[in-house]
């Protein structure tokens, strides 16, 4: 059995970590799959899907680390007009943060429940907001 849900979120800042743990947990419990795997996948190239402890201090450290690793003002190549968009791309830091965080995560589904550690939360991380964003949750199993 394969079940899919797409959630739409609207970020409100350029950098933002939005918890989506409960949306994932709820869909797993209602989708009918008892045992299998749940995949959480972002539909974008300037966001990330992260699993980490849902504390504000941890979020701050993640943001500050990414800012140190990917400074705003560097001679990035992705800073020119893009005919395929009809717009100028100059958001390389957003793409690089997305690369560092990855765009998906997975969880075990057992007895119709999401199996996760007590400290684990799932985030959609926004690196180029504010924007409307889509996250796909696909549950595969029986």
């Amino acid at each position: 059995m394969v079940k899919l849900k797409t959630i739409v979120l609207r970020s409100t800042a350029e950098f933002q970590m939005i918890k989506i743990t409960e949306e994932i947990r709820s869909f797993i419990e209602e989708c009918g799959v008892q045992n299998g795997i749940a995949a959480v996948i972002s539909a974008h190239t300037t966001t990330g899907i992260m699993v980490n402890e849902g504390l504000e201090c941890v979020e701050t450290d993640i943001e500050e680390l990414l800012e140190r690793l990917v400074p705003k003002d560097m001679p990035y190549a992705h800073a020119h007009f893009l005919p395929s968009y009809g717009a100028t791309g100059s958001n390389s830091p957003s793409h690089l943060k997305s690369m560092l965080s990855g765009n998906s995560c997975m969880f075990v589904v057992q007895n119709g429940k999401m199996i996760s550690g007590d400290a684990q939360d799932v985030y959609l991380s926004e690196f180029d907001g504010p924007k409307s964003r889509k996250v796909h949750i696909q549950v595969i199993g029986e």
């Binding site: 003002d73 800073a79 020119h80 007009f81 100028t88 100059s90």
Partner: peptide, 8 residues
């Protein structure tokens, strides 16, 4: 913003 990034 025809070339470069906006600052440049």
């Amino acid at each position: 913003l025809h070339m470069d990034n906006a600052l440049d």
